[in-house]
């Protein structure tokens, strides 16, 4: 039975697509963004045991197979384990079956418009998503994919057939800036942008605006706006330092992006035809 590493499930979310949605966050991401605000979702646990020694309430143990086991009942959610993890991982994840996730979705079902899968990067769990979405569709609910664009949707479009669409991050367009920021080639992201637009499965694009990065911000926003025009939402997100690893915070910014500064780029996006651009 296919299982996937689930970091957490939020029964009600109002910021992951239209209406009230259940958001499912999967563990693991092929990117390693400097600005990542939840870096503990990047890697899977390597069972090194550092967190076990540091847990103040004894909610973590190592079992007979040398695996780190998390005791949800004992855990007080102090996040010490995440802070001390040397591998940008979390011991507080669950390997869940589709049926186990569906149990949570069914429970929230009367109150939601649909689900959104996120991460980490949810498309790493492609087979799981296909099965999950097929089940969610039977409830009459919609499925949205929140993705960093690393998955080649054109090469394997199966998951799109059971999904309403994708909310795509376009983090950087200029190559040098992308490589510094993301540690992953940008070409596949830009290819997905075009492909998803072409097949009408792009729900929204998101771009983060960094403080004092006029040129880089402008290049990304201009590129996205000229491509999407009025065909999908364009969410301009202000960089916020919360959760960002300390060494990276020094590099990217210690403070959140000014609202006025971000609005400038939303205005630029609208000027370039992306009429549905807005700042959050």
């Amino acid at each position: 039975m296919v299982k996937a590493p689930v970091n957490k499930i939020i029964p009600f979310s109002n910021v992951d697509g239209p209406g009230n949605r259940t958001s499912i966050f999967f563990q693991g991401c092929p990117f390693n963004c400097l600005f990542c605000h939840n870096p503990e979702t990047i890697h899977l646990c390597r069972n090194c045991g550092v967190c076990v020694k540091n847990c103040p309430v004894g909610a973590l143990n190592i079992d007979a197979d040398y695996k780190v086991i998390w005791n949800r009942e004992k855990c007080v959610q102090c996040d010490t384990c995440i802070k001390v993890c040397p591998h940008d991982a979390s011991p507080k994840i669950q390997w869940m079956t589709v049926e186990e996730v569906m149990k949570e979705v069914r429970r929230a079902s009367p109150y939601i418009a649909g689900i959104t899968t996120s991460g980490g990067e949810c498309t790493l769990q492609n087979e799981f998503l296909i099965e999950l979405f097929s089940n969610v569709l039977k409830l009459g609910k919609t499925c949205l994919i929140d993705s960093n664009g690393s998955f080649d949707f054109e090469a394997d479009p199966r998951v799109l057939k059971v999904s309403e669409g994708v909310m795509l991050d376009v983090k950087a367009v200029e190559k040098g800036w992308n490589d510094e920021l993301i540690s992953f080639p940008r070409d596949i992201v830009l290819k997905n942008l075009d492909y998803l637009l072409q097949i009408g499965k792009l729900y929204e694009v998101r771009t983060l605006i960094f403080p004092n990065r006029d040129r880089e911000n402008e290049e990304t926003v201009r590129y996205v706006a000229e491509h999407i025009r009025d065909r999908c939402f364009y969410k301009i997100i202000r960089y916020r330092p919360y959760g960002v690893r300390e060494k990276n915070r020094k590099r990217i910014g210690e403070f959140e992006t000014d609202l006025d500064y971000a609005e400038r780029f939303a205005a630029l996006a609208r000027e370039k035809g992306a009429t549905k651009a807005y700042v959050v």
């Binding site: 009600f12 109002n14 910021v15 209406g19 009230n20 949605r21 009367p110 109150y111 939601i112 418009a113």
Partner: peptide
């Protein structure tokens, strides 16, 4: 405060709950 931007999300919750 963000919920002010998504009244439809709250309405969905209210509807579901009254139904239940």
């Amino acid at each position: 405060e963000t919920w002010l931007k998504t009244p439809d999300a709250i309405l969905a919750i209210i509807k579901g709950s009254l139904e239940n």
